[in-house]
């Protein structure tokens, strides 16, 4: 079996600042992998490089076509973000980026943009194919919201949602793009323990029911340790450790990098 995402010695420079320094990473199908590190380590930048917001200065990013374990290798460096999404990588944002003037349902419907195709003429004449497509995405969005536990908010404007629900809506929206890999950037940030526990279950549910692989950035060590099968630790843009939660928990280099922060919990 080969990985569905393989990053090879990726480097990202911002002027003189090397935000990511020759990092390798790989994810297998159906795996939950965590990417951790102190503030400013370069985790979000790593996501931005993979999802096409930045083009890495050096290195390669490969995906296995359609996320199949035996798919063809595709290099996705420098592709536009929307193209990357179409290839099956979806993400959430650390600083919530919902479509604030739209309803919760519409936010999820936007996620279906990539898998639908009605154009201007389709919109104006609203023929049979457009109608059924609309019906399909309304249905799909409802089901996703139900699964994520947001069905009571469907017609609410996204801005009016409580914080925890906004984070979940980001996940719902990403799921609507039919990804094989979900990249979550600090999904538990700002959540209370109860919400974090529910999130833990939700992430497992997403992986178990649909076989979607997950790459998770998170500062909540309890969540990371309980969920992930493999953990990568970065500091100052460099990968300093990689291994199972148990290995990471006892790795002296990691403990040193987190000096003051609690790793063993």
């Amino acid at each position: 079996m080969k990985p569905i995402l393989e990053v090879k010695s990726m480097t990202m420079d911002f002027g003189g600042l090397r935000a990511i320094d020759s990092v390798d990473l790989s994810i297998d199908k159906g795996q939950i992998v965590a990417l951790i590190g102190p503030n400013g380590a370069g985790k979000t930048t790593f996501f931005n490089c993979i999802t096409g917001i930045y083009t890495p200065t050096a290195g390669d990013i490969y995906i296995s076509s359609n996320g199949a374990a035996d798919g063809k290798n595709e290099r996705i460096n420098g592709l536009k973000p929307n193209v990357v999404t179409r290839k099956g990588l979806a993400r959430t944002f650390q600083n919530i980026r919902l479509f604030t003037s739209m309803t919760v349902l519409e936010n999820v419907m936007i996620g279906c943009h990539a898998i639908t195709k009605a154009g201007i003429m389709g919109a104006i004449f609203r023929g049979a194919s457009t109608k059924s497509e609309e019906k399909l995405i309304v249905e799909k969005s409802y089901l996703i919201l139900e699964k994520i536990g947001l069905s009571k908010y469907v017609d609410e404007l996204a801005v009016n949602l409580p914080y925890g629900a906004q984070r979940r809506l980001e996940i719902a929206r990403a799921l609507a793009t039919d990804p094989f890999l979900l990249l979550l950037d600090e999904p538990a940030a700002g959540m209370n323990p109860q919400e974090t526990m529910e999130l833990d279950e939700l992430i497992l549910k997403i992986r178990n029911s649909e076989g979607i692989s997950i790459l998770l950035i998170e500062h909540d060590m309890k969540l990371v340790m309980s969920l992930s099968e493999k953990i990568y630790v970065v500091d100052y843009g460099k990968k300093i450790a990689e291994g199972t939660p148990e290995e990471i928990r006892h790795n002296p280099v990691v403990i040193k990098a987190y000096l003051g922060e609690e790793v063993a919990s």
Binding site: N82, F93, R97, I110, H113
Partner: peptide
């Protein structure tokens, strides 16, 4: 809807495809 999404947040809408 894509227009409104672009108005609200360009980066997020690109991430939605």
């Amino acid at each position: 809807r894509a227009w409104v999404a672009l108005k609200d947040d360009e980066i997020a809408s690109q991430a939605m495809g």
